[in-house]
Design a protein around this nucleic acid. Structure first.
Lengths: 341, 341
DNA sequence: GTGAAAGCGCTAACAC
DNA sequence: GTGTTAGCGCTTTCAC
């Protein structure tokens, strides 16, 4: 090391640095943490030494001592449709915004994807791992009850999903039932009367959208909404949509798709079957993902404000972390009229 | 606590549990870690006690002691197009697969999105945080040199990106230059001669795709490839594409788009300008994202095997973690012919 | 303003 | 097979 380059890596901990600076470990800790009183010259010396050696305090040790990790866990339960649901566009977009928001607030993000069927204890395990200060669950999937169980005993938990009457856990999400109504009203306004709901009605969010559609059908005296269940993975969904279309050709003149992804696939299949949109069949999606603008014709859909959702999740979580009790946050859906209905 | 429910949370650490079980902390540690010799009855007793109290060893403490966290850092540098590039479909899909692979191998995933312009020290800071055993960088962005600097001194680092002659860091990625050739050859085969490259040529991967296109143009004696730079965010890109189209209408008969996302936007704009695809202009994308099948007409593109990429990244990282020296991994691109060229 | 010392919760080497 | 003990690297009283 005679070339004058700093010998990086030689400083393994705060004690090494303290020795170099000729002070005690405690002082180094104080200086690097940026708080408490430390003599300006001492601080500068320690900081320059740290920079020179590329030293940074070990966050695990710090976390252990402070009982705070500055890491937030984000978990995606893969309940209904096990594989690769994590690549679902909506959740991934939400995740992107969450990463932005958490970073801004000085937190790191620990991502975990779990299959509840294989690991019943997924939430508790994560919470008690000692690695995270709080948890954000993306999507209730079919795990509503398990989340409820845990929520009473663990404060810093916020969930993206659907709000249920009287639930205990703090949730952020769109008013799915209202969204379902809005979508269906639009279909009716565009001339549809025999309306189908495309998608699995199992997950809470989807069930609520379906219920909203049923509300409108009942109120307007339309025939009951026809459920056309599908999986979420594009491959299987396309096939299932084709089958539904073959089975119900001519019997429906409006489709409310549970997501834009499904709506887009549906549009492709409709074209394949020579069914014109919106003349013969009207179509409304849900989410307003970027793809909704690019379908042919562009997709009429119900917009969820993902950025606002992410902000809400992080904001509520931080407040709960600070000891506040928080209400759930319900975001208003917004109809975006394009060309399919 | 008279109702017989286990008093959860009362057991805060391994010592508490040891007291309850009438053994020493060391034995509890051994029993819960599942290794070393522990009497079967003792082990069962400890395990049932742990279950009853919902106790789980603190991973931070364990990590500190073992000098191993079982967490892999995944970092997405946002270099070229700062905001929201994290929601780029390709990266997010890769991230999903990475989460799957890492989970399978027993690792947790710590996600960090960084803006190198704001934080020159992003990689070093992450590595030295003490929170992760290794790092996967998703996308070299414009940070090739910084990654190179760090790579020599830090083994467990693997990068998704483009391979350069003689580079030091271990990279997994598609042969982008070859992909560019394949795409361009297809355009030519479909009748194009005046070819444009749509997208920023700054990022390494894109530069290589562009270079591949230039290879073919040179070899075949075509006019030079016309670069049509864009941003990656859909809003700005659409606008820029429209401007390019207006400026070069009639002067180009083939477009190689840097990504499927850009190709899809381009298709929309082409339609808007009344330019027929593939008759007047041929179009080839890159990635083979799900959207490529759903454009109208369906997109001819160059497929990257994202799942294989994720597997490669994790595999190489684990081997480097085990002390092996590994070569980079170059994946073959594959032409997927649909209807735009 | 700084040093000394205790300890966060865990694991592993060493006894027995 | 189990107990004891010494830290992992850091923060934070409590002295001075």
């Amino acid at each position: 090391m005679s070339d004058g380059k700093p010998e990086r890596g030689a400083v393994r901990n705060i004690t090494d640095l303290a020795r170099l600076a000729g002070v005690s470990p405690g002082t180094v800790s104080r200086a690097l943490a940026g708080k408490s009183l430390v003599n300006t010259k001492t601080r500068e010396k320690i900081e320059s030494l740290a920079r020179e050696h590329g030293f940074r305090p070990n966050q695990m040790a710090s976390g252990l001592r402070r009982q705070k990790t500055d890491v937030i866990g984000v978990v995606i339960p893969l309940g209904h449709d096990t594989r690769q649901q994590i690549s679902d566009s909506f959740f991934m977009t939400l995740l992107g915004y969450l990463a932005d928001e958490l970073t801004r607030e000085g937190y790191d993000l620990m991502l975990r994807r779990v299959v509840p069927e294989e690991d019943a204890d997924w939430l508790d395990r994560f919470i008690r791992s000692g690695m995270i200060d709080g948890v954000i669950v993306i999507g209730q999937s079919d795990q509503f009850d398990r989340i409820e169980e845990v929520a009473d005993g663990y404060r810093p938990l916020v969930v993206w999903g659907n709000r249920q009457e009287g639930q205990h856990h703090c949730v952020v999400g769109t008013d799915n039932r209202l969204g379902g109504r809005i979508a269906t009203e639009r279909l009716v306004a565009a001339g549809a009367r025999r309306i189908a709901f495309l998608g699995d009605t199992g997950p809470m969010e989807f069930a609520a959208r379906f219920a909203g559609a049923q509300d409108v059908a009942a109120r307007m005296g339309l025939p009951p909404i026809l459920p056309l269940p599908t999986h979420l993975s594009p491959d299987r969904a396309s096939e299932e949509i084709a089958q539904h279309l073959a089975a119900h050709a001519g019997a429906i003149d409006g489709i409310f798709a549970a997501t834009d992804t499904l709506a887009s696939l549906c549009l492709t299949e409709l074209r394949g079957h020579g069914i014109s949109v919106p003349d013969e069949v009207r179509l409304v999606g849900f989410d307003d993902l970027p793809i909704a603008r690019q379908t042919v014709p562009p997709l009429t859909t119900v917009r969820q404000d993902i950025a606002a959702g992410a902000r809400g999740l992080v904001d509520l979580l931080l407040r709960r972390l600070a000891g506040e009790t928080t209400e759930s946050m319900v975001l208003p859906p917004e109809l975006v009229i394009r060309a399919t209905a």
